[in-house]
Structure formats: structure tokens, C-alpha cells
Nucleic acid binder design. Structure first.
Lengths: 248, 248
DNA sequence: TGTACATCAGTGAACGCGCGTTCACTGATGTAC
DNA sequence: TGTACATCAGTGAACGCGCGTTCACTGATGTAC
């Protein structure tokens, strides 16, 4: 269920309010379908109104304009992805940090392949002319990275995460300006992870989404790789090593 | 210069043909500007015609329809990226394989940051309703990966590329189905690189574009990282290690 | 060299479409006394 | 409990916009004899 719909429903008192919440939920659901089949650029209030069986101007009772609907759908998608990731991670034992890392990666890929257009809205090229309002999208938009950070930090505190030690992949020292960024992040999130592991954690994060995006956006072409599950799992295993896990 | 324009100009004989080639080049240039400022979804033949100072139907003398213009622009962008990468790689000594790897990565990022909208056209979410014709886009679209593959294969043949050997990042064995894909690639491109290095090379490739996409598409947010050059260079260094370079 | 014809670039009007958004309105549902 | 009023959902018409694409046309540029 979408966050917007859930919020609206919890605040319900009168039948009128209940109907209103239901209509908003319907709008989000129809917008989601439209997004999934036609892409963000083609999303239109008139199309949603048609699907809702209502005249186009009626939608303005519920949504101020097109951008606000896009924001609702953005939040909705972020939360669905976040829910999928949480469920997958929570299904692994709390102390199986490497397993949780892998579960997170597989969940992201699974959701992305199921919802390519919505994944594209979140992680593809920005919608021209649309700027997501930080106040509404930041929290849902950071769920996955915060979850990943949580796994890495917990693993580090438990002694399960160590900087890669062999010559081939020892990363260069983190330059001061970057170390300052890392210090800020550590302070804000209350982390213990040292610089080298933060750097590699960020790389694992971007690389995970890079692999997923290449697959979802068709960069591999249609014929190069037939064993895509195996390719992704292999990549995930290497990324786990980059992030500092040794138990794979 | 765009590929389409170059092709047209090399075939020039009569003044009429020269004028025609010039107009096509102008159309591509104006379309490129429009793309860069308004995004692919907003690209329109009418807008290009306006900028060209011509009535909208006149453009149909040169371009069959909107999709064909998109294809021209796609090829144009792929070639500009390919040229930038080639120039950067060629500026390094032929046997400095790690340096060439790094130069390739920096060139991709540099071009992407200069041309975010065109980068988005190539590597972002697909344009809804548009399918790039493989016959025209495959060759320019594979220039960067082929260049990368060439560097890695040459490095391997020269003995400069070795599978990461320490326990933390030894990748798991490549499963048979994936090994079969790799064998096909090796045969098609005449490569010597073993499975483990192909797998890690593909990962380095997707990760490079993942890091660039996160930056270009705004996934880092506006405040998290102030030292973005350093972050990317650090990532590149780690990816070089993943790919099998040890001399960094 | 000069004339008749063919080719081509560009015009201007039109078709039909879908879009976001506004606005005065009708009725139904709720609320206050 | 019943009535007067306020709130709200949804209507239907309209505004102005830009789009892709077609088509018959005018003139200029080229080509063949």
C-alpha cells in the first residue's frame, strides 16, 4: 500500500473523509499503472481522470497539479521499494550481515525488474521540468541507503567487516576533502565505520544500482548475456568483498 | 562533429547536396541543443523547425519523422562520447593500461557532467514509445565498452592483469551458464581474458556508469558529498583493482 | 548555347489530437441551532 | 427532531497551447538534348 493512502486512511473519521482517502488511493493506484505502462513523461492528469471515470477537472479536488501527483507517485514507489528491501533483509538472521547485504541487493534488482518504469522514475534520468520537493521525498528516498549503511555499520561493530587487505585491491588513502565528507556522514548517522570502508560502501551502493540500471535500461543489449541472474549474483558477491565482507 | 553530418559531407558533390548536408547538420545541432536544455521527451520537430527558421513541414524533407531525428541524436551523442573517450585514452602511453583505464573512466564522467541530458538519453530510462534501430545505434553505442575491453585484454596479454588473489575479494567460481556467455563474448571479440576477469571487467564497466549516473541524475543529493572529484577518483582506483590491475 | 523539362526546398493551411488548468454551476452530504 | 446553512464532489464548457503529420502549391536550381 502506498504511504499517501496509508496516511490518509489512518486519519479517517467521517464517511466523507473515508471516501476522500479512498479516492486519493485510487488516483495513486491508477497513476502508478499509467506510469508503469507509459512512463513518467506521459503521465497526465486527464488520463488518470479518464481511468477514474470522472471529468478531468474533478481530479483537482484531490491533487493541486500534475507535479503533486508525480510527487505522490515518487513517494509511493520509494516506499514500495523500501518495503521490499526491508522484508528481504529482515528475512535473514540479524547477525548474518553478508546475507543481509546480498538480500538487499537481490531485493532491489527484483523490484526493479518487476517495475522497470517506476524504477526509471526513481533512478533514471530526471523528469524535465520537475523538481522533487525534498521535504516529502527525502525520507522515503533514503530508506535503501540507510538500510545498507545500517547493515555495514552493524557488521563493522561486530567485527565482521574488515578493509580488503591484499595488495591488488587496497584502496588508496582517502583524500582530506573526501574524509571531511565522510566525517560529516559518520556524525549525522552515528557510525563507527572507518573512511576506507565508507568509501567502499558508497562504491558498493552505486555499483549495485549501476548493475541494476544497466539491466533494466537495456544497456546489455538483448543477446550478450543469457545468464543474467548468475551475472548479477556474481557481481553482488564481488561487491560484498569490496564492501569488506570476507565470509562469502 | 556528428556521424550523420560527417557521412553526408563526405558524399558531397553538387552545391545542392552540400546545402542539404549543411541543413541536416544544422538540424542535428539544433536538436542537440534542444535535447540538452529540455530533455528527450520534450524534443519536437516543430521546435527544431522554429530554431532553423523554417516552417515545420519543411523538416520532413530531411528527416522522415521524430523517431528518426531521435536516432540521429542518439548516434551523434554516442559518437561524441566515443570521441572524448578515444582522445583521453590515446593521450596515455599504449602500455600504461591502468592509466588508460582511469583515463576512460574520467572521460566518461567528464562528458556526462558536461552533457547531462544527452547522457540521460544514452544511459537513463528509455524514451517511452521509442525503440532505437539496432542497425544504426549498435556500432556507436558499443564504442566505449569495446575500448574498455580492448584495454583489459591488452593488459592481460601483457601480464599486467591478474585476478585478485586475496581471500577477501576472490570471486566465487563463475557458474556454467555465465561461463558460456563469456565464452561467446571471448570468441566474438577474439579475447584471451579468463572468466574471472571477464566477470570483474563487466562489473567495473557497470560500476563506472553506476557512479556516473548517480552523480548526473542527482542521487547523491545536493549536500552529502562536496568532494565529488575525489570520490569518483577513489572509486575508479578501487574498480581498477577489481578489474585486476595491481599497479595503482 | 539555349530551351524544355525534372528535381527539389520550402510554404501555408489544415487535420485531429491531447494536454493543464480555470470557472461558474448543480446536487448531495454534513452540521448547527 | 426539523430546518437553514455550509461544505464538498463532481460537471461541463471553455481557454490557449503545442504537437506530428499530410498535402497541394510556388519558385528556384539543376539537367538533357
Amino acid at each position: 500500500m502506498s504511504d499517501a493512502a496509508a496516511n490518509a486512511e489512518t486519519a479517517v473519521r467521517t464517511p466523507r473523509e473515508r471516501a476522500r482517502a479512498q479516492t486519493i488511493a485510487d488516483i495513486v493506484r491508477l497513476g502508478r499503472d499509467h506510469l508503469a505502462t507509459h512512463g513518467a513523461a506521459a503521465l497526465s492528469l486527464r488520463a488518470v481522470a479518464r481511468d477514474l471515470g470522472v471529468v478531468s477537472s474533478a481530479v483537482y479536488r484531490y491533487v493541486a497539479n500534475r507535479d503533486e501527483l508525480l510527487t505522490l507517485l515518487l513517494v509511493d514507489a520509494y516506499n514500495e521499494l523500501g518495503d521490499a528491501v526491508d522484508a528481504a533483509v529482515n528475512a535473514r538472521p540479524e547477525r548474518d550481515f553478508a546475507g543481509r547485504f546480498t538480500a538487499l541487493g537481490l531485493a532491489v534488482r527484483g523490484w526493479a525488474l518487476r517495475e522497470p518504469a517506476r524504477y526509471g522514475l526513481l533512478f533514471g534520468s530526471p523528469v524535465p521540468g520537475y523538481q522533487a520537493p525534498a521535504s516529502q521525498t527525502t525520507a522515503p528516498g533514503t530508506r535503501v541507503i540507510y538500510r545498507l549503511v545500517g547493515i555495514l555499520d552493524a557488521a563493522y561493530r561486530a567485527g565482521d567487516l574488515t578493509p580488503p587487505a591484499c595488495a591488488a585491491v587496497v584502496p588508496p588513502p582517502v583524500p582530506p576533502a573526501l574524509a571531511a565528507d565522510f566525517e560529516t556522514i559518520r556524525a549525522e548517522l552515528g557510525l563507527a565505520v572507518p573512511d576506507v570502508l565508507v568509501a567502499n560502501g558508497v562504491l558498493a551502493w552505486t555499483s549495485l544500482f549501476g548493475a541494476v540500471s544497466f539491466e533494466v535500461f537495456g544497456q546489455y543489449g538483448s543477446e550478450t548475456f543469457s545468464a543474467r541472474d548468475e551475472l548479477f549474483e556474481h557481481h553482488l558477491a564481488v561487491l560484498a568483498g569490496v564492501a569488506g565482507f570476507s565470509s562469502i
